[in-house]
């Protein structure tokens, strides 16, 4: 029947197969993490969220001992990324770089998720808003901008409907009593700055780090940024110089943190928290923040959750009162700040 050589061959193959299956079973009972982790970034590459996520990624990898794969998943003002991570098994293998939009997507009607659905590992950095415009534009200062907006409805590039930059420009328009602009969501702060560069829009609002290179290279003019002190290199005036009334709002903009879905086992969260703390406290990360004009926030664990809760109250009600958000925060039991 079967020749002995072929029989040997078959036996050998079966043995190998058994070994493979065994190793599969053996590894199943080992500790978390056993395989690579997916880090979802709910915005396009190049933006503040993306930069922070990708900077933290290798640092967290060191602590966790497994590869972390960063995946951009833009869309729906971060609701697509949020929903994806929330729908994935709550086992710690899918984590989310969470920007400010979690405070607004519920009232904007883009998602049913709020901060209560997440274990916030921490809030790493704050990103102040900057107003940028093409150098050819006739508007040369933030005061001129207000004047022009009295008569004209400008088109303004922002990241997404309801994002931090939307709030920034809407606040600016409301405080100065001028026309609310037509918002053009470009899918991220960096694409918004590019839209201004390409003259697709009259003005763009985005995070300082997202436009800093273009401002340095003189491709965009920064009219002002929403902070208290002028930035020196490159020179960006603080909005409070021309509009002292904004002192009570600055620094104004977005923040970026990291989160994992509620319901993830406590020991997994603890390990992630550990890795996150290590990453944000590292010199590499602090240098990165300083070089790119991010403001360090450095909150983690429960402090961070409280911060996000307050942020939600402030942002959701701001958007609703300004008429930008269609749904009342009351529907999500978000108290007034």
């Amino acid at each position: 029947m079967l020749k002995s050589l072929q029989l040997n061959w078959l036996a050998g193959a079966l043995v190998i197969l058994v070994l493979i299956c065994w190793s599969g079973v053996a590894s199943a009972s080992a500790e978390w993490p056993q395989r690579s982790i997916l880090m979802v970034i709910p915005f396009n590459p190049g933006g503040a969220t993306d930069q922070i996520g990708r900077t933290l990624e290798p640092l967290m990898e060191e602590k966790l001992g497994v590869p972390i794969a960063a995946q951009n998943m833009p869309g729906g003002a971060t609701s697509i990324g949020n929903q994806y991570v929330f729908d994935a098994p709550h086992d710690g293998y899918t984590i989310l770089v969470e920007p400010t939009d979690i405070t607004s997507i519920a009232v904007m009607g883009q998602s049913k998720l709020t901060w209560r659905d997440w274990n916030i590992l921490g809030v790493a950095a704050a990103v102040p808003a900057v107003f940028v415009i093409h150098p050819d534009s006739s508007i040369k200062s933030i005061a001129e901008l207000a004047t022009v907006m009295k008569e004209k409805q400008l088109s303004v590039g922002v990241a997404a409907s309801g994002c931090a930059w939307t709030r920034a420009i809407s606040l600016f328009a409301k405080e100065n009593g001028v026309k609310q602009p037509m918002l053009v969501p470009m899918g991220g702060g960096h694409p918004a700055a590019l839209a201004a560069l390409k003259k697709e829009v009259d003005l763009a609002v985005c995070g300082v780090p997202e436009a800093i290179d273009l401002i340095k290279g003189k491709k965009l003019t920064a009219l002002a940024y929403m902070g208290a002190e002028d930035i020196q290199e490159p020179f960006i005036p603080a909005i409070t110089k021309a509009f002292p009334g904004f002192n009570k709002f600055v620094p104004f903009g977005g923040w970026v943190g990291m989160a994992v879905a509620k319901g993830t086992p406590a020991n997994v969260v603890a390990k992630l928290q550990n890795a996150y703390n290590y990453a944000v406290n590292s010199n590499k990360f602090k240098e990165f923040l300083a070089e790119n004009n991010f403001l360090e926030v450095g909150l983690s664990g429960e402090d961070a959750e409280e911060y996000v809760a307050v942020s939600t109250s402030v942002n959701a009600w701001l958007l609703y009162d300004l008429g930008v958000a269609p749904i009342s925060p009351e529907e999500f039991e978000i108290p007034r700040p």
């Binding site: 833009p74 869309g75 729906g76 929903q83 883009q110 409907s161």
Partner: peptide, 19 residues
């Protein structure tokens, strides 16, 4: 989910289609 407004298009209520 529509990239600009986050509205679920042609998803027929299925979460898997929302992606």
């Amino acid at each position: 989910l529509d990239p600009i407004h986050g509205f679920g298009r042609y998803t027929f209520g299925q979460t898997s289609l929302m992606g």
